[in-house]
């Protein structure tokens, strides 16, 4: 589910932010920014400060994004996975889209209950000599306690909106948010405990080797030498010590009709 079509991704992003798409063909997307998005992306706080002081409306800019590498020569910004502009947009997403509350869109004729799910997307980092990451999407039904993996894939098939549909009512959760999250953490803890962690063993071994090597260097045990050596040992530990960390990407409450 990673981004496959950058052009579609960008078009979706700007439309969701109520920006008008002026044109979009052959991998060239032209967008009229809103004031809000101009402030978020164009990095010109003085302009906005000044224009508002003058009591004027201000003119948000237009941007042209080229995703088709064959059209790089045309007027506009060539945007790709490494470009600062895309990184800026991704950062903007990560900072602003951490929390949600959504309802399944249904069209019932009778009263229909909506069941509460806690959904959490999180990233696990394994850092030793090198680093890698893993992403999990977990869903917990807050009444029955049923847990599902790959929750985002399930949700993709369900129409969702920010308000509850007519004739629908929500079932109150039995599990509290905090203990729901604890259950998810426990699942991850368990997953991590069941791995052999060769990477961590290799890192610890490399750390020990480097520290042993370091001790060969110092012959005299003067205070200054000992101090330098301790500084260097700390650097080695910082570089190799294995750490696993959890970081929530985003999450929220989802109310779904089926149990």
């Amino acid at each position: 589910m990673a981004i496959e079509n950058l052009n579609e991704f960008l078009a979706g992003y700007f439309q969701s932010h109520h920006c008008q798409l002026l044109s979009n063909k052959n991998g060239i997307l032209q967008v009229q920014l809103t004031e809000e998005m101009d402030r978020a992306l164009m990095n010109r706080p003085f302009y906005w400060h000044y224009i508002k002081k003058m009591g004027r409306e201000g003119e948000p800019k237009q941007l042209t994004f080229i995703t088709n590498p064959d059209k790089r020569e045309e007027q506009g910004e060539w945007i790709h996975f490494g470009s600062p502009r895309l990184q800026q947009i991704l950062r903007h997403l990560k900072q602003n889209e951490k929390y949600t509350k959504l309802f399944q869109r249904v069209d019932p004729h009778v009263n229909t209950p909506m069941y509460p799910w806690l959904v959490v997307n999180l990233k696990i980092s394994y850092k030793g000599k090198q680093k890698k990451e893993e992403i999990f999407s977990l869903g917990l039904q807050m009444v029955t306690g049923e847990m599902r993996a790959e929750m985002m894939n399930t949700l993709r098939t369900i129409p969702l909106q920010q308000t509850i549909s007519d004739y629908c009512y929500t079932i109150s959760p039995i599990i509290r948010l905090n203990s729901g999250y604890k259950r998810m953490e426990a699942v991850i803890d368990n997953y991590i405990e069941n791995q052999t962690h060769e990477w961590a063993k290799a890192s610890l071994l490399a750390m020990k080797e480097d520290i042993d090597t370091l001790k060969h260097f110092y012959v005299e045990q003067t205070d200054i030498e000992t101090e330098t050596m301790e500084k260097e040992i700390a650097e080695i530990e910082e570089r190799y010590r294995p750490v696993i960390s959890y970081e929530v990407i985003n999450g929220g409450m989802f109310y779904l009709s089926k149990v």
């Binding site: 959504l102 997307n121 999407s137």
Partner: peptide, 8 residues
């Protein structure tokens, strides 16, 4: 939903 899933 759109922005939430785009972030993911």
């Amino acid at each position: 939903w759109e922005l939430f899933s785009m972030t993911y």
